[in-house]
Amino acid sequence: MEVFFDPSGLEPDAAYIRVVRYSERREWPVRGGVNIAPGVAALDFEAPFNVEATYRAQMFTATGASIGWTEASTTVLEYAGTIVHQPLDPTSWVTVDVMPGSVSPLTRPEEGTLVQTEGRDVGVWIGSGRRGLRGVGVSLQTRSIAEADAFRDLQGSYAVRQIGTVCIRTSSTIRWPRTFFARGDFAENDRTIRFGGTKVTFDARVDEVEPPFPGLAVPLLTYGDLDAAYATYAERDAAYPTYTDMDRDYSLAGLAD
C-alpha cells in the first residue's frame, strides 16, 4: 500500500512527518514512514487484507516540535490469499495456504500472581494485563519447491542472517490478527515431494511479538534501479516532471539486481 501525503496539504513549517496506520483497533507506525521528508512516499508492506486501514501523518518542524496531524484517509487493501514476509526485507516473501492445523485455541495470557493476604477470604490478583497471543498453532503449505525455499529463507539462511520474526497477512477467516507478527521455529514437513510432488508444510507454535523498529526498512526502489533504467542523468530527469514522480516509479524496482 503506497501512502503519500501531498506537500501542498502539509503545514508550511513541516520539515518531516511520521505516518501511522489505524487498523483492527490498533495504531501502527508505518515502516519506512518514520521521520520522512514532505513529498516522500511510504510503502506499507504490513497493511492488512480486506479490512479498513486509516492513515494519518504527524507533522514536525526542523526542531522536532509537533505542529499537528494531517486529515485521515481510509482505504481497504483487497487481496485473497496469505502472504508471509520478512519484516526487515519485504522483498523476501512467499504465498502460502493456511492448513487445518492452524485451527487451534487462541490464548492471550494475563501474567501475574495470586496473593493470599491476611484478613481476606479470597486471594488478590496482582497482574500486568493481558499479553499477546501465545502458543498459536500455525500450519502453512507452499505449493512449489521454490516457494518452500523462499519460506525457509525468511528466517535466515546459511549465507544471509535475518531476525526470527515473520509477518503473516491473510484473508482467511481464521481469527489471527490481520497483521500478525509471529516468532516460532517452523518445522519443514515433506507432504508430496517424495512422491514426485511439490508440496511442503511448515508447522510451528508461535508467539505474537512486536514488529522490529519501524524506522528500519529496505527501500523497494533504489538509485541503482534508476541508474540501470537510464543511460544518463539528463535522460532520467527528462522522464519525470518532479523528483517525487521519479521516486514513485516502482515499475523500475529491482532492475539493478
Score class of each variant (00 low, 15 high):
L88G: 01
P7H: 05
T54H: 05
A37T: 04
L154D: 08
G64H: 09
W176Y: 14
T107C: 10
T170D: 07
L255R: 04
I36F: 00
R108P: 05
V51R: 11
S92A: 14
E208R: 03
G197V: 07
Y22F: 11
P38S: 07
P12R: 06
V122K: 11
D247Q: 04
T201C: 08
P29Q: 06
S172D: 12
G184M: 05
L154P: 06
G137K: 03
R21M: 05
T244F: 01
V124G: 08
A41E: 00
R183I: 14
L220N: 00
T61F: 08
V124N: 12
V218P: 00
D225I: 06
A80M: 11
L106A: 10
I193T: 15
E111W: 12
V20H: 01
V115P: 06
Q86L: 08
P7F: 06
Y55H: 03
S171E: 12
V40M: 02
W125D: 09
D89L: 06
V40A: 02
E46C: 10
F151T: 07
I36D: 00
R248S: 04
A228N: 07
S92R: 02
R205S: 05
F181W: 13
A182K: 01
L226Q: 06
V3D: 01
F5G: 01
Y240P: 03
E208L: 04
D185V: 10
A229R: 01
W28G: 00
Y22S: 02
T107H: 11
R183Y: 15
N50G: 08
G39T: 03
S251C: 11
P87Q: 08
T70A: 12
G132S: 11
T61S: 10
D121Y: 08
L255G: 03
D190L: 14
L133R: 02
E210M: 11
G184N: 08
F45L: 05
E78K: 14
F180V: 11
A15T: 06
W69E: 09
R131A: 13
T179Y: 07
W93N: 03
G129H: 10
V20F: 04
V209W: 00
A42L: 01
A229I: 04
A204Q: 05
D97W: 11
S128T: 15
T232C: 15
A47V: 06
V166Y: 03
A234F: 15
V160Y: 15
R108A: 12
Q155P: 13
F60P: 00
T179P: 08
D225E: 14
S144Q: 12
M59K: 04
G197S: 09
V98S: 07
G132P: 03
G132T: 07
Q116I: 11
Q155K: 15
S144R: 10
G132K: 02
V34I: 14
I67H: 05
S104N: 13
F49T: 04
T82V: 13
Y230R: 07
D44F: 02
L88T: 03
A228T: 08
T82C: 13
L140Y: 02
V51W: 10
R108Y: 11
V200W: 00
L140N: 02
T70D: 08
R18N: 05
P29E: 05
R130A: 10
E52A: 10
F186N: 04
D207K: 02
I193G: 09
I163G: 12
E27K: 13
L221Y: 00
P12W: 05
A65C: 10
